[in-house]
Simulated assay, not measured.
Amino acid sequence: MNEDRRLDVLRAIVEDYVATREPVGSRALADRHALGVSPATIRNDMAALEEGGYIAQPHTSAGRVPTDKGYRLFVDRLSTVKPLSAPEKRAIQGFLDEAVDLDDVVDRAVRLLAQLTQQVAVVQYPSLRRSALRHLELVPVGERHLLVVIITDNGRVEQRTIELEAPADEAVVARLRIRLNVAAAGHRLADLDEVLSGLPDAFALADEKLVRAVVGIVEETLAEDSEERIVLSGTANLARGGGMDFAHTISPVLEALEEQVVLLRLLGEMAEDAEAVSVRIGRETQHEGLVETSFVTTGYGADGTTVARIGSIGPLRMDYPGTMASVRAVARYLSRILAG
């Protein structure tokens, strides 16, 4: 059997099943696609694809549907990810450019991706420990409190308040602010422990307690698990069409989506290359609640460095080329905003 023709038949089956939700037969393939062979030859190719586990017969009709293995081969053999149209690109850029801060950027991105794909969109907040420090600000609040503001290169802002045993000397606070930024600005946050460790020795003994308190609060902030945050949008899209994309019920999917640790694990396992689009299909997610879904993700970040991931979750019967294009496009605009 011709290998290229078999792939053409599989591609046609996937495209028709995605479009119609109905099992696909050889006659329909011959009528809808210029495969250049007879329905009998297509039936032979379909029989070989079924024997190889790439398609299956859901019931006694003559139609076939792709399996997880068939979707995987289809995705792996996509020669290119089709680009979005110029109007779509302008709409994405215009919508995201109106964001006023990082929270707004993430919120707009997740809603936009859900709208583009009509699936569940997932955006992971930029990881604090993968970011670099842009500026560290110290702001006295009253006599005995000091506000520590950490601003990263990707626009993330973290604020912590220190309660002081005695009023802080404003000159000492100003000097500490300068020394902190000279020593730490531009460094990756994961490296700040070492960068800041010797800072207390540069101050008078009387000021050492304040300096250690500020350094300590910065280190504690970087160590907090709360940095791993994700935002979801479009869960209602899973129920469109009466949930016909799922064999039984969408409840296991919704329960899995509620467990952020599951999504964070998947995001962490998928490719680190900011330019790569990764796809987990069905059981490849290694979570029982997601066996009837596929997860398409890619990374985003400034200067080609992945600081977080963005993705789309939908049924196995999804428009893979379209979903991959949308995920990649929104990720690229996110990266441009962070780099700006």
Results as ranks from 00 to 15, higher is better:
Glu269Pro: 04
Arg283Glu: 15
Val261Leu: 08
Glu255Leu: 06
Val277Ile: 14
Gln260Phe: 01
Val277Pro: 09
Gln260Cys: 10
Arg265Lys: 08
Met270Thr: 09
Ser278Lys: 11
Val279Ile: 14
Leu266Asp: 06
Gly268Tyr: 13
Leu263Pro: 03
Glu255Tyr: 00
Val277Phe: 09
Glu255Ala: 02
Asp273His: 03
Val279Cys: 04
Gln286Ile: 03
Gln260Glu: 12
Arg280Leu: 15
Val277His: 01
Gly268Glu: 05
Val277Gly: 06
Glu275Cys: 00
Ala276Ser: 05
Glu269Cys: 07
His287Phe: 06
Ala256Phe: 00
Ser278Thr: 15
Val279Asn: 07
Thr285Glu: 11
Val261Trp: 15
Val253Tyr: 01
Arg283Gln: 15
Ala256Trp: 02
Val279Lys: 06
Ala274Leu: 12
Val262Tyr: 05
Leu257Gly: 02
Glu255Ile: 13
Ser278Arg: 11
Ile281Pro: 12
Gln286Met: 12
His287Arg: 04
Leu257Glu: 09
Val262Glu: 04
Val262Trp: 10
Asp273Pro: 04
Ile281Met: 15
Gly268Met: 12
Ala274Ser: 07
Met270Tyr: 03
Glu275Met: 01
Thr285Met: 09
Glu259Leu: 08
Val262Ile: 13
Ala274Cys: 00
Glu284Asn: 07
Gly268Val: 08
Ile281Arg: 07
Arg280Cys: 08
Glu258Met: 10
Glu269Gly: 12
Gly282Leu: 08
Leu257Asn: 13
Glu272Asp: 15
Thr285Ser: 08
Arg283Cys: 13
Arg280Phe: 14
Arg280Lys: 15
Val262Asn: 06
Gln260Leu: 05
Leu266Met: 12
Met270Cys: 02
Asp273Lys: 01
Ala274Phe: 10
Ala276Leu: 08
Glu269Gln: 14
Arg265Asn: 11
Ala271Trp: 05
Glu259Arg: 11
Ala256Val: 07
Met270Ser: 06
Gly268Ile: 14
Gly268Ser: 02
Arg283Ile: 00
Gln260Ala: 04
Val253Met: 12
Arg280Glu: 08
Thr285Val: 01
Val279Gly: 02
Glu258Thr: 00
Ala256Gln: 08
Ile281Gln: 15
Val277Asn: 09
Ile281Ser: 13
Gln286Asn: 10
Val261Pro: 09
Val277Leu: 08
Glu258Ile: 02
Ala274Pro: 00
Val262Thr: 10
Glu259Pro: 00
Leu264Trp: 13
Glu255His: 09
Arg283Asn: 15
Leu263Ala: 01
Leu254Lys: 03
Leu263Gln: 00
Leu267Ser: 06
Leu263Arg: 03
Leu266Gly: 00
Met270Asn: 10
Gly282Asp: 09
Val261Gly: 06
His287Leu: 01
Ala256Leu: 05
Glu258His: 07
Leu266Pro: 08
Glu272Trp: 02
Arg280Pro: 05
Ser278Gln: 11
Ala271Val: 05
Val253Arg: 00
Val261Asp: 15
Arg280Val: 09
Asp273Ser: 01
Arg265Tyr: 07
Val262Lys: 02
Leu257Pro: 01
Glu275His: 09
Glu259Lys: 14
Thr285Pro: 01
Glu269Val: 07
Ile281Val: 14
Glu259His: 09
Ala274Trp: 12
Leu257Lys: 02
Val279Tyr: 11
Glu255Met: 12
Leu267Trp: 15
Arg283Phe: 03
Leu254Trp: 03
Ala274Asp: 08
Thr285Tyr: 01
Glu258Asp: 14
